[in-house]
Amino acid sequence: MIGLDPRQLLWRLAVIGLVATIVQIAAVSQLEILGANADVTPLVVAAVGLLAGSLPGAAFGFGIGLLLDLALVQTVGMSSLLLLALGYGAGRLRELRDPQGALVPIAVGAGATALALVGFALMSFLLGGDAPLDPAILWRLALTLAWGTLLAAPVHALVRRVLLPALPEDPRRRRRRAYTTGGLSPLSRA
């Protein structure tokens, strides 16, 4: 955790959380294309987990979930529980596997969207609400998943841009170090 400034990270996470929640409620939720709208909150939580680790990911997920439940007058604690699990999961993935591929944010974003959809359905059902599954709703869920997958990369890039100055040295310099410790950069060889 060299170079990590917890206060700066906290501020940045708070701003990301507030902006993501407001944008989701005031704009993204009201945009329905082909019968479904995107949900950027699981994408943002997954991106934070992937960039900052499991604990900041879980805490951020809890916070953004609480804000969503309060702002939308939903069952308080439901989104918090779900999103903290997503943030923690994405963070653990980074800590245990440290995936480096360019497609990782997209795959993680798609997975986070899918888990959020399934998680909401399960929790709604467990809490006594209707969580029916018929072709119409499955189509809508599939579209939401598709929008989530499409938006995963830009959302991850945005979150990374905001968090970058507050992130530990390691993930920032990882790619550069591969050239400096293992030999010449492909560019200098050419």
């Binding site: 499991s54 805490a59 604690g77 529980l81 903290l84």
Partner: peptide, 21 residues
């Protein structure tokens, strides 16, 4: 520390859910 923090967050969510209901 990580496990304790995670357990606290989960417990907090479950507590909120229970109280809300």
């Amino acid at each position: 520390r990580r496990r304790v923090a995670l357990a606290l967050l989960v417990a907090c969510s479950l507590l909120l859910l229970t109280v809300y209901f």
